[in-house]
C-alpha cells in the first residue's frame, strides 16, 4: 500500500517538477506558462479577496444541481430500461439518438432560451450527461446475473420486488461507478457552459483571464478544477467502500 502511494505521488511530482524546471529556468516565456510561484501568489490574492471561494461555491452549486437533476431522472428511467423490454424499446432509439447530439452545440440555443442564468448551466449539464447516464444505468441493470434474479423468482417476489430488491441492489455498485463517471463529465460541461456565458464561476474566471492574458489565473483555475475533481472522486470511492462492504473481499480475491 505504502509503495503504491509513493508511486502515485511520484507521478504528480514528475509533472510539477517539469513545470517548475521549464518555467523557473526561463525556457518558456511567463506569458505562455507562469511559474508555480506566480500561480501561488494569484491563489493567495484570490483567497484574500474571496473570489476563489465564491467561484468554487458558484460552480459547485451549478454542477451539483445539474448532476442531481440528471440523476433523479436518469435513475428510474435507466433502471426501467434495463429491466423492461418495453421501456427499453421505447427509450433506446430515442436516447441513443439524442446522446450523440453534442451538448455543446446547444449552448447558443440554451442562451436564447434561458439567458445566462444558472438554469442555462443546469440545462447544458443535463443535456450532456442525462442521456449517457440513462444508457449506462440501463446497462448496469442488464448485466445483473440471471441467477440472482431467479432466486427472487423462486421465492415468489413480484416484478416490482425483483427490480427493487434484486436487480437494483445487485446493480447498485456499478450504478455508483456510473454516477462517478457522470460527475466527471458534468464538470466538463459546466466549465464549457461557464466559459461561454457566465458572470461568475471557475469557467468564467478562466475566460476573463484570457482577455488580460493573465495565464496564472488560468492555470490556477485549471488546477482548482482538477483538485476539486480529484477530491470528489475520492469521496465517491470512499462512500462506495462504506456502502458496499460486501464487495471488498471479492475484489481482492479476483
Amino acid at each position: 500500500m505504502g509503495k503504491l502511494r509513493l508511486i502515485s505521488a511520484s507521478g504528480i511530482l514528475l509533472v510539477f517538477g517539469a513545470w517548475a524546471i521549464v518555467t523557473y529556468s526561463g525556457l518558456v516565456d511567463a506569458l505562455f506558462l507562469p511559474t508555480p510561484t506566480q500561480v501561488l501568489l494569484e491563489a493567495k490574492k484570490q483567497l484574500d479577496d474571496g473570489t476563489l471561494f465564491l467561484d468554487i461555491e458558484m460552480s459547485f452549486y451549478r454542477i451539483l444541481m445539474g448532476f442531481l437533476l440528471s440523476t433523479i431522472f436518469a435513475l428510474p428511467i435507466g433502471v426501467l430500461m434495463g429491466t423492461s423490454k418495453y421501456w427499453n424499446a421505447f427509450w433506446e432509439p430515442l436516447v441513443g439518438f439524442i446522446r450523440y447530439m453534442p451538448a455543446v452545440a446547444f449552448i447558443p440555443l440554451s442562451i436564447l432560451w434561458f439567458g445566462t442564468s444558472d438554469l442555462q448551466k443546469f440545462f447544458i449539464i443535463f443535456l450532456g450527461v442525462f442521456f449517457q447516464a440513462v444508457i449506462m444505468i440501463a446497462d448496469n441493470c442488464k448485466t445483473v446475473k440471471k441467477s440472482v434474479v431467479e432466486v427472487g423468482l423462486t421465492l415468489g417476489l413480484n416484478k416490482f420486488e425483483i427490480i427493487k430488491d434484486i436487480i437494483f441492489r445487485a446493480a447498485l455498485p456499478s450504478i455508483w461507478d456510473t454516477l462517478r463517471t457522470i460527475w466527471g463529465w458534468a464538470w466538463t460541461y459546466l466549465v464549457v457552459a461557464e466559459l461561454v456565458a457566465a458572470s461568475s464561476g471557475l469557467g468564467f474566471r478562466i475566460m476573463q483571464a484570457q482577455r488580460y492574458l493573465s495565464t496564472e489565473t488560468i492555470i490556477l483555475g485549471i488546477l482548482v478544477i482538477g483538485i476539486l475533481g480529484l477530491v470528489t472522486d475520492l469521496l465517491f470511492s470512499y462512500l462506495a467502500k462504506i456502502m458496499f462492504p460486501w464487495r471488498e473481499r471479492e475484489k481482492i480475491s479476483n
Binding site: S147, E150, F244
Partner: peptide
C-alpha cells in the same frame, strides 16, 4: 413459493 429451489451453483445475494 410452493416450491423451494437449491441451485447447482451458488445463488446467494452477495450484498
Amino acid at each position: 413459493r410452493d416450491r423451494g429451489v437449491v441451485f447447482q451453483q451458488y445463488s446467494l445475494l452477495p450484498w
